[in-house]
Design a protein around this nucleic acid. Sequence first.
RNA 1: GCCCUCGUAGCUCAGCAGGAUAGAGCAGCCGCCUCCUAAGCGGCAGGUCACAGGUUCGAAUCCUGUCGAGGGCACCA
Length: 589
Amino acid sequence: MKQQVQQLVREALQRLADDGVLGDGPPPEPQIERTRDPSHGDFSSNAAMVLAKRARTKPRDLAERLLAALPASPLVAEVEIAGPGFINFRLAADAYRRLIPEILLAGSGYGRSHIGAGKRVQVEFVSANPTGPLHVGHGRGAAYGAVVADLLEAVGYDVHREYYVNDAGRQMDILGTSVWLRYLELCGEELRFPSNGYKGDYVWDIAAALHREHGDDYRVDADRVFAGVPLDQVEEGDGGDKEAHIDALIANSKRLLGDNRYRFVFELGLNTILDDIRDDLAEFGVHYQAWYSERSLTESGAVNKAIERLREAGHLYEQNGALWFRSTDFGDEKDRVIVRENGQTTYFASDIAYHLDKLERGFARVIDVWGADHHGYVPRVKAAITALGDDASRLDVLLVQFAVLYRGGQKVQMSTRSGEFVTLRQLRKEVGRDAARFFYVMRRCEQHMDFDLDLAKSQSADNPVYYVQYAHARVASVLRQAADKGLPVEPSPGDTNLDRLTESRELDLMKSLSRYPEVVEDAALSEEPHQLTNYLRELANDFHTYYNAHQFLVEDEKLRDARVKLILAVRQVLRNGLALVAVSAPDSM
RNA sequence: GCCCUCGUAGCUCAGCAGGAUAGAGCAGCCGCCUCCUAAGCGGCAGGUCACAGGUUCGAAUCCUGUCGAGGGCACCA
């Protein structure tokens, strides 16, 4: 609808340009926006103000000429010049009425478009280390990434969703060792669990599974495991070193178990947790096209290849036994280590290889959804891409701020270190998938979020999820009532009877319905799902207002038919919008 | 110390590729069910858009600085 108005202005501008009114060059693309104030009509263009300087006229004079050049259209009921030079359009009620059969015909396709033109976009999100279950912070990234991906798909992009699995590196070794130590405790070994180990209950569970399946097969005397290991740091200033302590334990684990058996324990931990994450996300309505293994990058030689390319391009140097990437040449604040003194490549090296791989796979755009705590990481990844001769602007990093949970007005304390964090699974169990999904994307991602658990659980109008779902359920309820009363619920074809929709609330509702495709497009292109949830709330509000003001199942057959068609269209749009945020659209509450 | 994000109604947040009197939801106050679910609707009240400068015909929106909140500054991932 907006596009149709835009087309009119575009033609008018072209005419003025042909007449030489606009000075040199082709006319610019006109900006059309929905008005805030209904007294300004439905749409507004600031073209005259923007082009006044170029045309060397006053904005209002140019607006007059533009108005005169505007082609006639049945769409428009009224055009006027207002304020400093805005051109305001009021559309004909029929233009809105015609939308209803369009929506009913398009069904789940209403609001979808082809702006993306099938361009391939990759969205990588969550990508949490498989060292423990997902917590509520990951949940926000999961919901956000999933909705951004679905939105982009809805506007015609070919979307590839990917989870980068950090299945290599020290953190994973710490997990493997943690599992083994817990297992040894289950075997009856006495030991002091390292302060830097993973202490969550899930580690016990994995250890228990190992013990159940393999008895004492992996048992080694605790004394041998801790032999020659530097002191742990139990509390501040006790002279211990928890990093050196855990590293030595890892080394001992590898040595005492041998490669194959160490690998077995390691894989057991990794796979158990990864399976759990996979299930968790699937239950949350989050699905991926690929789970990309970090380890595979090393094994395929991709990491070495990336390093070689950087070396050939002259961006590497050696210092203190390590290999560094001169990222400061590309705007990073300091240079970064690629290969450590001990010969191991860093996580960053893998990440360079991974991003190189992403770009080589030919995605027009690559979107990374990261936790805000990784923001310092952005410049170095972009630096690496630039250094490799690619265009860093193809990569878009979206940073998602943390969510702070509130229960009973109190902040829910969380600490990853002690293993006391609320998991995504617990959250889903407490508030349900619908509320979790909706609440997570209700706010701009860069906004710190207060997640009110009590509100998310409440079955009241205060809760925006119930509010929107209730609107959907009410439509279904009306249809049930119609059936009970023996009234025909099959709507008439096309725009039959729609001229009976003359109430202001009906027009408001139709206007809201007409905005939906614009909302989806804006939300998708700006990667802002909250625009969609806000819209859904507004649409639900328009519907509830209408519901309260008018009876739908009236005696007058034609009016009844018209109103039923309108609310069917409302139901369709609510369904489509809720589907995009993966929230259910129930027929009864 | 340096860097990033944020600071809008009592609370939670929209609005920010500059535009017409700053919006919504809670909470507060006042109304609305013999009628399709009141899990709803309407109304009132509530703001020096953190602060100070600057750019502009025009700034919540752009720039600089100050203050405040969160985060980041590893040969961890």
